Amino acid sequence: MADDIFPRTTLQEAEDWLEAELRDTLDEDYEIELEDAVLSMKIREIYNKAHGPTLPGPDYFRALLHLQAELIRLQDWVVHNNEKVVVIFEGRDSAGKGGVIKRITQRLNPRVVRTVALPAPTEREKSQWYFQRYVPHLPAGGEIVLFDRSWYNRAGVERVMGFATDAQVTEFFDDVPEFERMLVRSGIRLVKYWFSITDEEQQMRFLMRIHDPLKQWKLSPMDLQSRVRWEAYTKAKEEMFEHTNIPEAPWYIVTGNDKKRARLNCIDHLLSLLPYTDVEHEEISLPDRVYNSSYERAVLPPELYVPSKY
């Protein structure tokens, strides 16, 4: 049977190739996880002492791979049934929104599942209806859209930092429930997550970013101001929940102090909300490669090749 699959390859060579492919896949997982590789050892020691134990690596990866396999089943169901799914990720800076989005999309088709992370609005966009710049990013049938922050910027950073007036915030709270009901009535499955971390945890994560050259890009002046205005953000969050936690689109709070558990819990919960089922697929078979005895592969100039430095 191996000769049928690998006509010019020995069984041992095939096994070696498959093992190398598996190792490469796992290496990708480890690469994503090695986020603190160049972190100051002193900061890491303080963080680990304050944070406490998390899931052992093998247990985490086993659970993550299982959930990612389920996400592939969900993706197939969304495409097959022409479903439209929107998932909103909100929360304090450094709460872990980007981390869970990365794990959700890691093994999915980017043509089906896409992430939307809009920059600050332009002057033209500021003059538009507030929700207007978000509407073009909503899904068509067979698509899942993940919003890494969303229209809830108005209830959070814009309000706390003074970019929106009290009247604009009041109007937002009046409009957003009906806007989301319209989305749901149109057939969009809308899910909203708030990632919650403690004051102490955010401070430690900010310190880690300051001392980690690979993460310093994540810190903006706005992020630093969020430390100063912690209590203002808390009050804004509480009022946002009060006005926008509607039956058609409720909020779900993810406890985020433990990043690994937060990722697993969020993905597991998301899967539980959507009634996906298996989709039948035609059996895939690799066609035979056509060999032409007169074909000779052209020799390309060496300058076309990327230098083999590693």
Results as ranks from 00 to 15, higher is better:
E200S: 14
T115M: 13
E238M: 05
K215P: 10
I46S: 06
F131E: 02
N292G: 09
D174Q: 15
D29H: 14
T198Q: 12
R205D: 09
Y152P: 02
V176D: 00
V157E: 02
V78Y: 01
V86E: 05
V38P: 06
K102A: 03
A298I: 13
E33S: 10
F241G: 05
Y134F: 15
F195H: 03
A236K: 05
K260W: 12
H281W: 06
R154N: 01
R73C: 01
I188W: 08
G99R: 02
E28A: 13
E28V: 08
P136M: 10
R205G: 09
D36R: 09
H66G: 03
S293F: 14
M240V: 00
P53L: 10
E33A: 11
F206Q: 07
V176G: 04
L146V: 08
E303P: 04
F206N: 03
L207P: 08
F206T: 03
E201D: 11
S294A: 15
R8Q: 14
P307V: 00
V290L: 12
G98K: 03
I197E: 00
F147Q: 07
I144A: 06
E242R: 13
L207V: 13
K192M: 04
N109T: 04
V79S: 04
V87E: 00
W17Y: 13
T277C: 12
M182G: 09
K235W: 01
N257W: 01
D288A: 10
V78I: 09
R297N: 10
V85L: 14
Q203R: 15
N257V: 09
E19C: 12
Y47K: 07
A69S: 12
G99N: 03
W230F: 01
T105M: 09
V87T: 08
E45V: 08
S94T: 09
R103M: 07
V290S: 05
R62K: 14
Y291W: 14
P247Q: 08
L34Y: 08
N265H: 15
F172E: 00
R261A: 13
V85P: 02
L67I: 05
L270N: 06
L207F: 11
